[in-house]
Amino acid sequence: EDSQASAKTRFLGGDPPMVVQGVLGGSTADFASAGMSADLSAYAAAGNWDELYPAGLAASGKHNGTWVSVPVFVDTVNWLFTNKSVLDAAGIDEPNSWRDFIFSLQALKQHGVIPLAIGGEDWQETVAFDHILLAAGGANFYERVMSGDLDAIGSGTMVDAFTKFSFIREFTDEGKAGRSWNDTNNLVVSGKAAYIFMGPWATGGYGEMEEGKDWSCRLTPWSETVTALADGFHFLKSDNAEDQEAQRLFAAALTDPDTQIEAAAAKGTLPAVKGADPAKFSGCATKAVSRMNSGKTVTHWNARSSGLKSALKDTVTAFWNGDMSAAEGRDALLAAVKSN
Rank of each mutant, 00 (worst) to 15 (best):
A5H: 10
T9F: 13
G13P: 05
G14A: 09
P16R: 03
P17I: 04
V19G: 03
Q21A: 13
L24R: 01
G26C: 09
T28A: 12
A29P: 08
M36R: 05
D39Q: 10
L40F: 04
A44T: 09
A46I: 10
G47M: 13
G47C: 08
D50T: 07
G56M: 11
K62V: 08
G65C: 11
V68K: 09
V74I: 15
D75P: 06
T76D: 13
F81E: 06
T82M: 12
V86G: 03
D88V: 06
D88G: 10
I92L: 02
D93T: 10
P95I: 04
N96Q: 11
R99D: 15
D100C: 07
F103L: 07
S104V: 00
L105E: 04
A107H: 09
A107G: 14
L108W: 01
K109F: 03
T126K: 00
T126H: 00
A128P: 02
D130S: 03
H131E: 02
L134G: 01
N140V: 09
N140A: 14
F141M: 02
V145G: 01
V145F: 01
G148D: 07
L150D: 10
D151F: 08
I153V: 15
I153T: 09
G154N: 08
S155N: 09
S155C: 11
D160V: 14
T163F: 04
S166P: 02
F171S: 03
R179G: 10
S180F: 01
S180H: 06
W181E: 05
T184H: 02
V189M: 05
K192S: 14
A194W: 00
Y195I: 01
M198E: 08
W201Y: 06
G205R: 06
G205V: 04
E210M: 11
C217I: 08
R218E: 15
S223R: 01
A230K: 01
H234C: 04
F235K: 00
L236K: 00
L236N: 02
E242P: 05
E245P: 04
L249F: 07
A252I: 05
T255F: 02
T259R: 08
E262Q: 12
E262A: 13
A265I: 05
A266Y: 02
A266L: 08
K267F: 12
T269L: 04
L270W: 00
P271K: 04
K274T: 12
K280H: 09
G283F: 15
G283E: 15
C284Y: 05
A285T: 12
R291M: 14
S294Q: 14
S294I: 13
S294A: 13
T297D: 07
T299E: 07
H300K: 06
N302M: 14
K309N: 08
K313P: 04
V316M: 02
N321R: 15
G329P: 11
D331F: 03
L333T: 03
A335I: 11
A336Q: 02
